[in-house]
């Protein structure tokens, strides 16, 4: 197959996304309730609809109640099918264990095309952004490393997606 390029985005994508009336749907995929909570708390005050991929078990229902108590205006729902959740999403945030990253990427890659995919990692020596980008070849992959303190290290090859992830998680 011939070498096809991928689109270059213009610079106003981030500012537009942040002041839009239309809400972005952000799918959150997490290994544990704590990992889900860590992500949702970072994005809850943004103008978005949060779609948590979960099996609707008691633990996640409890999390939903906690989040809705803490952020009364949040639009928060759960969905049990990961592929459908990511299909609905405009942006996908993964906070999964290192060994789960590859199988999750395999499951969502078909519906993650051209979407910003943000993946959290505890260790900087884990799967790097280029490894995940290879798995999600047509997505705009961003890696976020928890560097222990409150600061986050955010990396990726797509400048605009990087800017968006920074504004979403730090802003």
């Amino acid at each position: 197959m011939a070498q096809w390029s991928q689109p270059a985005y213009s610079g106003n994508f981030v500012s537009q996304m942040n002041r839009m009336a239309t809400k972005n749907t952000i799918a959150v995929i997490a290994s544990t309730k704590e990992k889900a909570k860590a992500v949702v708390q970072k994005i809850a005050d943004k103008n978005c609809r949060v779609l948590l991929v979960s099996k609707h078990d008691d633990e996640y229902l409890q999390l939903q109640k906690e989040i809705q108590f803490q952020f009364p205006s949040i639009e928060f729902e759960t969905i049990d099918c990961m592929k459908d959740g990511c299909w609905e999403a405009d942006v996908i945030v993964m906070n999964v264990n290192e060994d789960e990253e590859k199988p999750v990427a395999e499951m969502i890659k078909e519906v993650a095309i051209q979407k910003v995919v943000i993946s959290f990692s505890d260790k900087e020596n884990g799967c790097c952004e280029n490894d995940l980008q290879k798995l999600l070849h047509y997505s705009r992959v961003i890696k976020v490393f928890n560097s222990g303190s409150a600061s986050l290290s955010i990396r990726g090859n797509d400048a605009e997606a990087l800017q968006y992830a920074s504004s979403l998680l730090k802003g």
Partner: peptide
Amino acid sequence: KTLFIPKKLR
């Protein structure tokens, strides 16, 4: 196909 964003809307 690599350029289109698949999107479900309820």
